[in-house]
Nucleic acid binder design. Sequence first.
DNA 1: GTGGTCTAGACCACA
DNA 2: GTGGTCTAGACCACG
Lengths: 139, 139, 139, 139
Amino acid sequence: MILSLDLGSEIPIYQQIRDQVVVAVATGELAEGSALPSTRQLAGDLGINFHTVNKAYDLLRREGLLLLTRKSGAVVRRDPHSGPPEGGFAEEWAGRLRTLLAEAAAQGLDGPTVLAACTTTVNGFRAGQTATDDEGGVR
Amino acid sequence: MILSLDLGSEIPIYQQIRDQVVVAVATGELAEGSALPSTRQLAGDLGINFHTVNKAYDLLRREGLLLLTRKSGAVVRRDPHSGPPEGGFAEEWAGRLRTLLAEAAAQGLDGPTVLAACTTTVNGFRAGQTATDDEGGVR
Amino acid sequence: MILSLDLGSEIPIYQQIRDQVVVAVATGELAEGSALPSTRQLAGDLGINFHTVNKAYDLLRREGLLLLTRKSGAVVRRDPHSGPPEGGFAEEWAGRLRTLLAEAAAQGLDGPTVLAACTTTVNGFRAGQTATDDEGGVR
Amino acid sequence: MILSLDLGSEIPIYQQIRDQVVVAVATGELAEGSALPSTRQLAGDLGINFHTVNKAYDLLRREGLLLLTRKSGAVVRRDPHSGPPEGGFAEEWAGRLRTLLAEAAAQGLDGPTVLAACTTTVNGFRAGQTATDDEGGVR
DNA sequence: GTGGTCTAGACCACA
DNA sequence: GTGGTCTAGACCACG
């Protein structure tokens, strides 16, 4: 697993780390149960302070994606969320989705293009979550 | 057009304004050519500093959504973007989309649910960009 | 509102702050809508680092008790939780309750005494949440 | 008696063990006079370091719940605490109770619900400390 | 002015 | 060794 940081970006470093881990878990690139580098290890590799990594890991733990143990470091949880997400998340998330899609529309991307991007992205996630399309799925 | 601000949100106020305008334009709630309140007017209504509104308007102008003139105030542009978006936007946007969708997956929303949300949202935008869920739809 | 910290306690300072704010809100000592000192202000008063206060405030915000704004500082939320708590909290909380009550039993406190303490404590919270007892409530 | 550990919890393992033993003794699931597995035995079963088990047992011994002998291993004391608890415990415990109950209130659990949970929990403890919810109960 | 982020270095508890 | 806490000081974005 390789993280590519953009120091100097307006997006906080700790959130870049968190985002990339989330995506990696969703795509299956980061298998459940696999271990991540320790905070200080990763901080050293990335050339940043371990507190920054700490914050990212802490975020991921709160979201239920990471298991932080004092002996084995950080491990991707096997059962992030068995059932549907907690109350309130879906609404909050839908709002963000609406904003993001509207942004695309405002910049000239038409509906079909946007939906194609959504489908492709979702189909890129780990199996068991294939799209509604036909049996061919990703195409 | 009614703006609902969440003071105390981690999202900056100016961005909340900008986001809601973007969505309103996409859905057609805010027709092209229609005028927005003046910065001082809106700031007064919302009970915030007019500099904040100014920043939001300026953002929208730079994104090509708003036309700021000294006499007519802020007007929604008639031709926001006829062609495809400028270089780099699509990639940057796709990255954000991937992160957002991965987040949903991580919280337990399955693929079909996520795609349904995408479709519904896009279909809610103004005509000319609609895409139904029949076979022609997602491509 | 006065916070009494026990530096050198095994309980982290940021959690002491958080706990006392939670209790103060529950008892009504800290009215909803009232403002707390700014992070740096409180840190100065308590003689601790502002990062520590920051962490406590951040915790309280995540729990929905505090509203952190960049202009007014920290404000107690008016509507912490309108409905029942999010899924999972009740179970997790019940587990902690069981441990705490068992601890009392282990140290020789008998059932009635423990329940009396519970009733008294709950009745000490802000109105609208009086106990099941008879109309006299507190005994 | 079965211990269920949550490695990766923010609660130290040794305390999880200690907590569950305390609860088991309170409910009577672990009868007074019964023996617990040896430290190495339990450590092996749980797949953890025996030092960790050692620490938990030592804690329980200091709290007066366990009797550690070189020949019989760990045995639940027959007379944990005949009289009232030692000075200082009640106050310290009441403080923790207040914090815990306030937390529930802050998350939207109302008074009656909280008290019902308390009553149910206490009634689940071993006989001699029962207290029903009739008029004699809470006092 | 506010909160938020990042860095740096120290110390501690857990395993 | 791990993560967690606290301190200290710098800089930035928001309002």
